[in-house]
C-alpha cells in the first residue's frame, strides 16, 4: 500500500492507495503517530484509491480515531469506493466516523 500525506490550508489528508490490510499496520500507525506528534488532531483518510480493506485496517482506523479524539480532533473518511464503503457500513463505521462520499 502507498501512503501519501497532503497538506492544504489547515487540513491534513492521509491518502492511501492499494490494499489497506494487515500488511499496512506498521506504516499506517507510524504515519498517524507522526502527524499527532506534529500537532495535527484532525486527519482526513482518503480512501478513494483503496481497492481492498480488511478487519485489521478497520482496527487501525478505530485506533486512529481514539488517538485523534484524545488530541481533540477526529478522523474523517473520504470517498471510499463502493466495495470498501459496503464493508464500512457492515461494520457500522458510518455511525462512528464522518464519511464523506
Amino acid at each position: 500500500m502507498e501512503i501519501n500525506i497532503k497538506q492544504a490550508d489547515n487540513n491534513t489528508t492521509i491518502a492511501l492507495k492499494g490494499r489497506f490490510d494487515f500488511q499496512a499496520h506498521q506504516e499506517f500507525r507510524r504515519t498517524v503517530d507522526g502527524l499527532l506528534r506534529s500537532g495535527k488532531a484532525t486527519l482526513m483518510v482518503d480512501l478513494s484509491q483503496v481497492d481492498f480493506i480488511d478487519s485489521s485496517a478497520l482496527g487501525l482506523l478505530l485506533l486512529a480515531r481514539e488517538s485523534c479524539e484524545k488530541a481533540g480532533g477526529e478522523v474523517i473518511l473520504n470517498q471510499p469506493k463502493d466495495y470498501v464503503d459496503k464493508v464500512l457500513r457492515l461494520c457500522h463505521f458510518d455511525q462512528l466516523f464522518q464519511v464523506q462520499r
Binding site: 480488511d54 478487519s55 478497520l58 482496527g59 487501525l60 478505530l62 485506533l63 464493508v87 457492515l90 461494520c91 457500522h92 455511525q95 462512528l96
Partner: peptide, 16 residues
Amino acid sequence: VDTTNPRGRGLFLIRQ
C-alpha cells in the same frame, strides 16, 4: 460486533 473494539471483527465479517 462490538463496534468500537479494534479487534474481533474477522468472523463477524465472514458471516456478513
